[in-house]
């Protein structure tokens, strides 16, 4: 394993030069932004400490572990691969992620999974307000409690919550849990090591789809 230190651009250049199968460790990231963005190889990267904004964003295939908390937008626009945060995440975790898996062992702040486009976000702890805002496709699993405005203006993404929900957002509703849901949550919780999640006792939140079309009844309001 190669151990890297230095400026963000030099570190990112070195990470992107790694061949498939390689591993690297970034020592002492000190909360710097944009680390390990744009990876496109079957590599295993460890950031050994707190990282800043957009950690691992835009990545494909790579397996990234952060031994500490991360700032805004971890895994933003992730395409595939996996990011494992062994700490808390600030706002907008996995925003617009098209694919891949973002695991946050701790809590995630506001707007986790905003505009999710097919990726998977799993948070072991609590999430702040507006989780899943306008999420179009994909899955969010919350191992703890959810803040206010959960799933506001959801499209086709589905949110599973283990704990309490402070409040649902506009057009989000609680739906019955199907056997498929239970299977999906069991597999995901196992992958993430979330032993505290009981797949048969999560709450499924999805779109009521009342915002999908204009209603002639509300013509005056438009």
């Amino acid at each position: 394993m190669e151990a890297l230190t230095g400026e963000v651009r030099a570190i990112n250049r070195a990470l992107r030069a790694l061949p498939d199968g390689a591993s690297a460790l970034v020592a002492d990231p000190r909360g710097r932004h944009n680390l390990a963005v744009g990876l496109d190889a079957d590599v295993r990267i460890t950031l050994d400490g707190p990282a800043g904004y957009y950690t691992g964003g835009l990545g494909k295939r790579a397996d990234l572990t952060v031994n500490g908390p991360v700032g805004w937008g971890v895994g933003e626009n992730l395409m595939s691969g996996r990011i494992h945060v062994k700490g808390d995440a600030s706002q907008s975790a996995a925003a617009t992620a098209h694919g891949g898996l973002v695991i946050v062992d701790g809590d995630a702040s506001l707007r986790a999974g905003i505009s999710l486009k097919g990726g998977t976000l799993a948070v072991g702890g609590d999430v702040g307000a507006y989780c899943g805002f306008m999420a179009q496709a994909g899955t969010v699993l919350i191992g703890g409690d959810a803040g206010d405005g959960l799933g506001d203006s959801l499209y086709e993404a589905v949110i599973y919550v283990s704990g309490r929900i402070a409040g649902l957002g506009t057009d989000a509703r609680v739906e019955d849990l199907t056997e498929d849901d239970v299977r999906k949550v069991r597999d995901l919780a196992k992958t993430c090591g979330f032993d505290h999640v009981d797949p048969e006792n999560v709450t499924r939140v999805a779109s009521a789809r009342t915002l999908y079309h204009f209603s002639t009844q509300h013509h005056a309001a438009y």
């Binding site: 707190p50 800043g52 700032g71 307000a129």
Partner: peptide
């Protein structure tokens, strides 16, 4: 405003870090 600004404070490793809600 920046996490990095906390890193140099004495005893930061044991601090409770959080973001205030709306």
């Amino acid at each position: 405003s920046e996490y990095r600004a906390l890193v140099g404070l004495p005893g930061f490793a044991a601090a409770r870090v959080f973001e205030p809600g709306p």
